[in-house]
Amino acid sequence: MADSRTSTGSCRVRLIGVGSPHGDDRAGWSVAERLAELDPQKKEEALPMGRGGVSIVSVATPIDLLEYLDGVEQLQVCDAFVGDGPAGRLYRWLWPEAAIEQTRFVGSHDISLAAALQLAESLGLLPAQVVVWGIDVGPSPCCVPPASADRFSTTLETGIRAAVQQIAAELSQWARHA
């Protein structure tokens, strides 16, 4: 399911944030949203968005990412997972890597991230290069949004910022060499 604020048209690199509105599980969406909002006027930040470049979407369940693989050369996925902590620690995995299957990504909805990627591979939909960014939300994530503002803990917020920075740097580097 696409976030309507982002481009979902033809692109070479797709960044997909997986998550939900539930507490720390929003981390994947938050990274996607912040990447989409990087200021195009700032040269060091600007991503080559749109046709032939980068497209960013948010999905609620991993199975939804199968809808956004047409013509994509590189897939980047960002999702939160329940780990040993500390909250905010960022991991970068290249698919297929055993750690992706062993990691407990937040949310138990139907088909896991690893299963969705395997299914995409079985159906011949997966691009050659798939990068999975995992954000550790610690062993006891906040599953329910606070009644007031939906804010992350300080440590998780730091991790989300780091993810935005690193993914942006990687996408920019890719654009320069494309």
Binding site: M1, A2, D3, S4, R5, S20, W29, S58, V59, A60
Partner: peptide, 8 residues
């Protein structure tokens, strides 16, 4: 997505 303002 069309009716809900966003699909997610």
């Amino acid at each position: 997505e069309i009716l809900g303002g966003r699909a997610v």
